[in-house]
Amino acid sequence: MFEAKFEDGGLFKKIVEAIKELVKNVNLEANGTGISLQAMDTSHVALVALQLNEKGFKKYRCEKSLTMGLSIENLQKILKCSGNDDQITLRTQDEEPTTLSFTFESKNRISEFQLNLMSLDQEQLGVPDTEYSSVVRMPSNEFTKICRELGNINEAIGIETSKEGIKFYVKGDIGEGQVSVKINDTEKPEERVECEVDEPVNLSFAVRYFNLFNKASALSSQVILSMSQDQPLVIEYIIEEMGSLKLYLAPKIND
């Protein structure tokens, strides 16, 4: 028996919105500590990892660990039948569920849906706990804007960290550009830029993954970029009181 109730159903809709362009079919894992999801994009360049802690739910019960294979596209079709202010409850009765039930509750209506599940034998990547040598925390809409603007100039974006801060740069056929974001310790947390740079990094990435993933900026006003030289970068959106949504992205390297 599994039941998880989102106080803010809109949050769950934003999470699915943020990952729907990156991953197609995912295994949703539920156990006593909460719900998690880990899936790679088709090219195996990016990995989406979601972690939602049971304490963040209005109601949460999971007697036995469950794996529920679902199509993100079909999940979206069901979620489109809910309002952004609805409370959303996920529920299954059986131990080997073939469907996942959804209840959408608002003040003037209650809806029930069932999503058919699928069995997905997906390879799970072991992502080691890594101490990153550069960790940058910045406003998520700022990061989204920089990726979108520089992405118009070149499909690869360079990220260079130093004690002074973080620099994004592009060198394309039409020309080149760079954006240096200055550290600031403004008292408004959503506008703060912090850099912990033990070792500077200089890495390149396909910016289209950033642009796909940055829909998650609706989840949090801040984004955390964790980097080490010659390692995949981690973009993390903290989901207030619930957990986090992460994107691991492999770099592009000079051949």
């Binding site: 990547l125 396909a206 492999a250 000079n254 051949d255």
Partner: peptide, 14 residues
């Protein structure tokens, strides 16, 4: 020229 690496190069399968 930049080439794209895949995650399997860094992370092993469980």
């Amino acid at each position: 020229k930049l080439i794209q690496v895949i995650l399997g190069y860094y992370y092993s399968n469980n």
